[in-house]
Design a binder for these strands. Structure first.
Lengths: 164, 164
DNA sequence: GCTATAATGTTATAGTATAACACTTAAAAG
DNA sequence: CTTTTAAGTGTTATACTATAACATTATAGC
């Protein structure tokens, strides 16, 4: 085990984000090494951009930055990197926003549970077993076999509630 | 009150769908009358198409049908009708599929909880208070104020499990 | 080094959604 | 009943999101 439990709640605005980022990149490198897959410079860079903050980024936002750095970056450049990162659980897609955010806990396979602030745009990943169990129970009642649960809760984060 | 509690689980393949559809249109007419808003021919027709089955439809699928019926139907034609229907809770958007499905219970305001079969594409709307409570509890722990919860559970419906 | 495979570059296009303005129809006011 | 006003729809153009298909380059294993 390389890391202690990663962040799952809203960060202070002034938290040490460089630390989050470094840890995320270290986890990714370790995970890819374990699985014998390649965290190439491009994939690493895209992951870095996604972890640039706790606010989900659009694919074309990422592309804008890449274009300034690499000759000929195009949509497939970023979508392919994102596909790789998602396959390995390093990044989640926020379905309700067409955006992407780093996963703080890529080793544990899970669907995403997100709290998303409608004011500041920050997203926090939950992974609440109570929610998961309630869903499984409810699905079971309908005779439904649960594959990938998508949970995206729009609302107000603690900071924006106070300022509100 | 015009109607008894509407469907919330997976329908038999051979259920009386004409009945579902009629009830949905009646509910919509009553709701619009109550609220003093207009269920125009276009809006009614789009709702009818969305309720053509229990499988969510894409906006451009709806558009294809409309084009055959109305001169000059274009994307705004269908998106505007869908916006109206969504505003009044008559239709939900399935975020993970860019598709739209009729709501069986438009009077009770609620975010959508959906079970979506990855094989046959059918969607069933839940509205499980256990799930809702688990989410509220978990969000409260993070100091987050819940607005609109989006829950889309991909998996296998009872019929597709059996056919396997 | 050679070969097979994986990754990326490159061009084109598909699929989803909205902006902006013109026109028509229906409701409200007189 | 007509005028006025607002709501709804038509129409054109365009923005945003994502993938297909094929060429080229880089990497890993032999």
């Amino acid at each position: 085990m390389r890391q202690a439990a990663p962040t799952t709640t809203f960060m202070d605005t002034g938290h040490d984000h460089a630390h989050c980022l470094d840890e995320a990149l270290d986890r990714a490198a370790a995970l890819c090494a374990d699985r014998g897959v390649r965290l190439t410079a491009l994939r690493r860079r895209v992951l870095e951009l996604v972890w640039g903050g706790h606010k989900p980024l659009g694919a074309y936002d990422i592309l804008e930055t890449l274009k300034a750095e690499r000759r000929g970056a195009a949509p497939p450049t970023v979508y392919r990197a994102l596909d790789f990162l998602r396959t390995h659980g390093l990044v989640h897609r926020i379905e309700s926003q067409n955006s992407f955010v780093g996963c703080p806990d890529p080793n544990k396979p899970h669907g995403g549970q997100f709290l998303i602030c409608r004011t500041c745009g920050l997203a926090a990943e939950l992974n609440d077993s109570g929610v998961d169990q309630a869903i499984r129970k409810s699905a079971a009642k309908a005779g439904f076999s649960v594959g990938r649960p998508i949970i995206e809760i729009q609302g107000l984060c603690p900071h924006c509630r106070k300022k509100g």
